[in-house]
Computed example of a mutant assay.
Amino acid sequence: VLKPIRVPNPEQLHTCMDDAEGFTKANTLEWYARFDDAEPAPVMPAEAPASGLRCEGGNACPEGGIWWTPAQTDSRQSFKKGDIMPAFHDSSYGATIWYKETNQSAS
């Protein structure tokens, strides 16, 4: 985020203190660039709709239709009423919450 507004030719961040080693021009540049090669932040899945049905993984599906969960990519699938909704316990997203699609169109 800050890279576009970074000072193009920075001097040292702090030259020194009496009892501490200060920044050199080289490690000042390293400090400024410390996130330049970092992995991009993970893209958060779309937020759940403000209204509509939801069901926690492990529970019976309350209504048949197409459901999706942000706990796993490409999770969109059809469930019948009473089907047990899968729970993805190893998901880095957290709890598995399923959301019923409200704009279903026949294809």
Rank of each mutant, 00 (worst) to 15 (best):
Y93L: 01
A38S: 13
F35P: 06
N103W: 11
V1C: 11
P70I: 00
K3S: 13
V43F: 06
R76M: 14
K80V: 12
S92C: 13
V43Y: 05
A33K: 12
G65H: 01
Q104R: 14
D83M: 05
T73C: 13
L13S: 05
A46L: 12
S107Q: 14
Q104A: 15
K80G: 11
Y99W: 09
T24K: 03
A33P: 03
A50S: 13
K100R: 13
I84D: 07
S92P: 13
G65Y: 02
T102Y: 08
L2T: 10
Y32K: 01
R34M: 08
A48D: 08
A46F: 08
E30R: 05
G52R: 03
F88L: 04
E21F: 12
P70N: 05
G64R: 07
W98I: 05
F35T: 10
A71L: 02
S75M: 01
Q77F: 07
R76V: 10
F23H: 05
S51R: 09
L13Y: 07
P86A: 02
P4C: 07
A46H: 11
E11F: 10
S51N: 10
N59S: 13
G82C: 00
A38M: 09
D83F: 02
D18H: 10
R6Y: 02
Q104G: 14
W68G: 06
R76W: 11
D37K: 09
G94W: 01
K3G: 05
A50W: 04
L2A: 13
N9S: 09
P40H: 05
Q72M: 11
K25P: 12
T96H: 05
D36G: 01
T28R: 01
T73N: 15
D74G: 13
L2Y: 13
M85F: 03
T28H: 01
A26W: 07
H14I: 14
E21L: 14
Y99N: 12
A48Y: 11
V43I: 12
G65C: 02
P4R: 06
T96Q: 01
W67M: 02
S51F: 14
Y99Q: 09
S105M: 14
P40N: 07
W68T: 09
Q77D: 04
S51E: 15
S75H: 03
T28M: 05
S92L: 14
D18W: 15
P62T: 04
K81A: 08
E63G: 05
G94P: 02
P4D: 01
S78I: 11
G64S: 14
E47Y: 10
T15A: 15
S75E: 04
C55K: 00
S92W: 15
Q72E: 10
G64L: 00
T28S: 04
R76G: 12
A26M: 06
T96I: 04
S92Q: 14
Y99R: 03
P40I: 03
